[in-house]
Structures are given as C-alpha cells and as structure tokens.
Computed example of a mutant assay.
Amino acid sequence: MMKLEEMKRVLKESLPPKRYKHSVNVYETALELAATHKLPAEKIAVSALLHDCGREVGSKESVAKARELGLPIDDVELQQPILLHAKIGVYNAMHKYGVADQEILDGILYHTTGIDGMTPLAKVVFLADMVEPGRDFPGVEELRRLARKDLDKAMLLAYGNTIRYLLDEGQLIHPHCISGYNELLLAAKKQ
C-alpha cells in the first residue's frame, strides 16, 4: 500500500480541486471522529481520504466504466449512476493505491448507501462525508453534534435524513440504506 502522503499527491492529480478539498475535509473530520471515539486512526485515514477516489470518473461515464471493470451494477445504481463511484473507488483503491485491507475498502464501498453490519470505521467514513465543514444542509449541526457523541444514533439520523431527501426528490432508495436503517432502529428499540 502506498504511503498516505503519496496517496494525497496521486488523489490531488486525479480529482477536480473542489472534490479533492472535500476528500481532505472528510479525511480530517474522520480523524477527529476517530480520536473522539477512541478508534484506530490509520485505517480510517486511508478509507476517508480515498472515499471519493472513484469520482475521477464522471457520473455519466460511470456505468460504462463499471462495466469495463467488470463490476456488478444493481438496478438502483443503473438509475442513479452517481452511486457507482463507491464501487469504482474500491477498484481504484486496490489497483491504483495498493489497498488490500477489506475494512478500508468497505469504508469506501458503503460511504454513500450505508449497509447493515457496518464497522465503526465504515460508520466514521460515512458520517465524516456527511458532516465535513463544507457540508451545509438543514440539520447538519445536529448531525455533527450527534456524530461526536454516538455513532449509531448519528447513523440513524443520517439514514433518516437521506431517506426523506430521496423520497422528496422522487428518487430510488438503495436497499443497503434501508437495511442499515432497519438494523439500527431495531437495536435502538431493544435498548
């Protein structure tokens, strides 16, 4: 695996400036959350930095690129190709940046949809992507506060916000998002 500084250099050359700045913001936010929740920072740093490395391929080209790479594409991704940047990102992380650690790759893979059974690393990457300083949407401050306090409660709020947004926009909701939400809500109801 490439060293972190080398990853930053390659990523900066691969992404538009605005997307690179977002990636660095997510990286820094994820490291803050890792420290707050006493989680190992090394893997989180790599996963957070590279979470959007698949965005070097534009959404319009992502279906063709995913097919070219032999990546599976589900019906929701076919209708909302922006989601494919996560799978393309995993491919890039492995083949361009030398990442082999499955937990790091899962953090990249599930940073957009979430899924049930997410590790603390994947939750931190998911939440850091939503609450980094460049993000501004109704409820982001509450989500930032909760992310520093309780990862599962923050994930539940993030899923709820995402699902409401997708419903309001008349967009498909990925089954992974629903399964992640249901898992956390069931766990919360048992407490």
Rank of each mutant, 00 (worst) to 15 (best):
P138C: 00
Y159Q: 10
K149P: 00
D150G: 09
D152M: 01
V124F: 01
R148C: 10
Y159C: 09
R148I: 10
K153A: 13
M155E: 03
K149Q: 10
P133K: 05
M155G: 08
A128G: 02
Y159E: 09
V125T: 06
Y159F: 15
R148G: 15
V125L: 02
K123W: 02
F126W: 12
R135F: 00
A122H: 00
K153F: 06
K149I: 10
P138R: 04
E142M: 13
L157G: 05
M130D: 05
V131T: 14
A122M: 06
R135I: 05
A128I: 04
R144F: 10
E132I: 06
G160I: 04
R145S: 14
A122R: 01
R144V: 13
A158Q: 05
G139M: 01
R144K: 15
R145C: 11
D136E: 13
D129L: 01
K123M: 14
M155C: 15
D152H: 08
M130Y: 09
F126E: 03
D136V: 05
L127F: 10
L146K: 14
E142Y: 07
R144D: 07
G160R: 11
L157P: 10
A128W: 04
R145H: 13
G160H: 08
L157M: 14
L157V: 09
P133L: 01
R148A: 11
M130L: 15
M130E: 06
V124Q: 09
L143N: 03
F137M: 08
R148Y: 14
V125Y: 05
D129G: 01
L156H: 06
E141K: 14
D136C: 11
R135M: 15
V125D: 02
L127C: 03
E141F: 07
D129K: 00
A147W: 07
L151E: 09
K153E: 15
D152E: 12
L143E: 03
F137P: 13
R145V: 15
E132W: 05
F137N: 12
V140A: 02
G160K: 08
A128P: 03
L146Y: 12
V131D: 08
A128E: 08
A122Q: 07
V131A: 07
L151W: 07
D136Q: 11
P138Y: 00
E141D: 15
N161R: 11
N161V: 04
L127D: 11
P133N: 07
P138I: 00
V124Y: 05
D150P: 09
R145F: 12
V125P: 05
R148W: 15
L127V: 08
A128V: 09
L157Q: 13
D150L: 12
K153N: 14
R145K: 15
P138L: 06
G134Y: 04
L143V: 04
V125R: 10
G139E: 01
E132R: 06
L127M: 04
M155D: 07
E141W: 02
V125C: 02
A154K: 11
G134V: 04
K123A: 09
L151N: 06
G134P: 05
N161L: 14
L127P: 12
G139A: 00
F137W: 11
E141P: 08
R144G: 09
K153I: 03
A147Y: 08
